[in-house]
Amino acid sequence: MTTLAVILLALFSPVPHKHPTKSSTRPWLALSLYIQQPQVASSTMHPVAPKDAGALIFHRTLTEGPEITSPVVGKAQGFIIPIEQFAHSAFNIIYLTFDTHEYSGSLSVQAKNVAQKDKEELTVVGGTGSFAFARGVAVFAQTNRHTSNFDAIYHIKLHLKFPNRSQTIPG
Rank of each mutant, 00 (worst) to 15 (best):
T3S: 12
Q142K: 15
G54L: 13
Q85R: 12
D52Y: 05
N92H: 04
A76R: 01
I94G: 03
R165S: 02
P47G: 06
G126S: 06
D52C: 07
K112C: 09
P163V: 00
G171E: 14
I35L: 04
S104Q: 13
S70L: 06
S42C: 07
G105H: 02
K119D: 10
G105V: 04
S24C: 06
S23C: 04
T97H: 00
I80G: 01
F162A: 00
I7E: 09
A76V: 03
L56Y: 14
P170Q: 09
Q39E: 11
H88C: 07
Q167K: 08
L62K: 03
G65E: 04
G127N: 03
D99F: 07
V139F: 08
V109S: 00
S13D: 10
F131V: 00
L122Q: 11
G54F: 08
H17S: 10
F162N: 00
K161Y: 08
K22P: 07
G65I: 02
I35N: 01
E84K: 08
E120H: 12
M45H: 12
E121V: 15
V125C: 04
S108F: 05
P16G: 06
F162M: 00
P66N: 05
A5M: 13
V72K: 01
I169R: 00
Y95K: 07
D52W: 07
E84C: 04
V72I: 11
I156T: 13
F140Q: 09
I153G: 10
H155I: 08
G65N: 04
R26S: 03
A5W: 06
N92A: 06
V114R: 11
D151N: 15
A49F: 10
G129K: 02
P66M: 08
G129F: 02
H101P: 01
V114G: 07
Y103V: 02
A41R: 12
G78I: 01
H146P: 03
V137W: 09
V15M: 09
V139P: 15
T147Q: 13
P16Y: 11
I83C: 04
V48C: 04
Y34A: 02
A90D: 06
Q85L: 12
S148W: 11
A152G: 10
F58A: 05
F79N: 02
E120L: 11
I153P: 09
P50T: 08
A53S: 13
I94L: 08
T143E: 15
L8T: 09
P47S: 13
T100H: 04
E84S: 11
V72S: 02
H17E: 14
G136E: 04
I169G: 01
K51M: 08
D52A: 09
R60A: 07
L31E: 11
G105I: 03
N149F: 15
Q37D: 12
F91A: 10
A132K: 12
G105F: 05
A76T: 03
I156H: 06
L96P: 00
G74H: 00
H159M: 14
S32A: 08
L8I: 07
V40R: 04
F133E: 12
I35K: 01
L56T: 09
L33T: 01
D118L: 15
P66A: 14
L122R: 11
K161C: 12
N92M: 07
G54Q: 08
